[in-house]
Amino acid sequence: MLKIDHITIKFGGLVANNDVCTEIQKGQIFGLIGPNGAGKTTLFNIVSGFYAPTDGKVIFNGEEIQGLPSNVINGKGIARTYQNINLFKKMTVLENVMVGCHGQTKANLADAIFSTKKKRLEEEESIEKCHEILKFMEIDHLSHLKASSLPYGAQRRLEIARAMASNPQLLLLDEPAAGMNLSEKDELTQTILKIRDKGYTVFLVEHNMKLVMRVCDNICVLNHGIKIAEGTPAEIQANPEVIAAYLGGGK
């Protein structure tokens, strides 16, 4: 479904991703791990269109998408969440998710001004769809609250809900468990599995190894922008290079 083909990106002299290749199959939960500063989020930013790579290709469903603006990439079926929560703080939870429906809805300015039947129907449909997503993410009871007033774990869930509203095939989750407590992490693990079972493909950056090892079908490990390993969780855990990267390599 998503092929990352020899991606290199340089910021001045810093090579953040160096010749990274990997492939994500439909229906997988694919994990991307690595020590701090390994270039995980950078790779996410390339896939979601926030950075254009210096070299290499990103192929999504057979189409080259590298360098396209992020709103176009969203339209092609990739949605993401952010490491440092990027919610629309002053909007309600429901409105946040409804912004996610933007690409799926068509009503234009004239429809809005004249409040046409098309607009009203579409609006009702979006509201219904968003409540469904919120129920799925188990935060529907908070739908009327301001996004900024939510507890931290719920904010992370809302980010995922908002991304899901744009009907993506591929969902990029950037450290969804960061800052969560143990029970929240356990619930999130279940939720990610549920998201996969619903038919989404998930591409996950995460530091919490317990979560990664439990949910991922395949894992890619980056260190200093270079891919050092790829395989199933069991293979990764046994890989000496990965262990060296995380614990510091002895000579």
Partner: peptide
């Protein structure tokens, strides 16, 4: 409306707005 929500989303967080299409 959808247009208005897009306006507010841009005010609140242009990066996330763009990421949502």
């Amino acid at each position: 409306s959808r247009t208005g929500r897009a306006f507010i989303a841009i005010r609140e967080n242009p990066v996330a707005a763009r990421g949502l299409g």
